[in-house]
Design a protein around this nucleic acid. Structure first.
Lengths: 132, 132
DNA sequence: AAAGGTGGTTTCATAAAGTATACTGGTATG
DNA sequence: CATACCAGTATACTTTATGAAACCACCTTT
């Protein structure tokens, strides 16, 4: 399940030419929003990003910290974040191998967006809870 | 598939008492973000919100405008947005009935968040497309 | 009376997302 | 030598999300 952007990149690479520019203006405005949502939505992306916010962590470390996540999901999500250059994976040549994940500088640029989501979500919570 | 917040509100109403305050600090910070994402994610929420941005619209009108959406999805999403007070549904007593959907003032408060998502998504697009 | 628009609902199917459980190969520890 | 840690993978499964198609009651136009 690659993101919309990833799919487009593949298409671009295969077709060579840009495929029919029939996007309406409206669609053009929607796409970037969807790209961003693609990256943030799902059950585990945000928890993972938050977990890496203050310090780099190892795989098992994250698995323990993010309660409920299975290694399969953690692995999958980390790969996606890596493809999008938000997370860096570093393998150390120790025995046994040590693998560290960290947020890239670019990954940290998400904090502003996440902050906005949080602010809005916070007042939304107050609004709905107070009326129930 | 009610949102996380909706589920919590139901729980609150049933239990009377607030159920065990065992939320870790970390979780508390995550929840509002998830609430916001709950509202924005999915295939049709953003297109619907955008469609209603400049003017109120009728059901069939939206169905024609948002290409690919089925009446089932449109109906479902509009209900959810209505529950969250983002959209107002007005029935006019004409023959045949006219139903108008519009963004509430509150719904318009999402534009800031959506704008942030768009800005981030736009530069992400440039970043990835330029490197491929 | 047939055809077409309005605002949807119902039923059945498929696709996508997520979970459970077991397992691998290597190393270190008791 | 059994057990446990590490960084994952593999397989099977369930749950959600979305889709396609038909249908409803009501009304207007032809």
């Amino acid at each position: 399940m690659p993101t919309i952007l990833e799919k487009e990149i593949k298409k671009k690479q295969q077709n060579g030419a840009t495929s029919a520019e029939q996007h309406s203006e409206c669609k053009k405005n929607l796409l970037p929003v969807k790209d961003a949502l693609d990256i943030l939505s799902g059950k585990w992306k945000i928890p993972i990003i938050i977990a890496l916010t203050f310090e780099k962590k190892r795989f098992k470390e994250m698995q323990r910290e993010i309660e409920g996540i299975t290694p399969k999901m953690l692995s999958k999500e980390l790969k996606e974040l890596e493809i999008n250059q938000l997370v860096k994976r570093t393998v150390y040549d120790t025995l046994p191998v040590t693998v560290e994940y960290s947020l890239t500088t670019y990954g940290k640029s998400l904090h502003k967006v996440i902050g906005e989501l949080r602010t809005w979500g916070l007042q939304h919570r107050k609004r709905l809870l107070s009326k129930s």
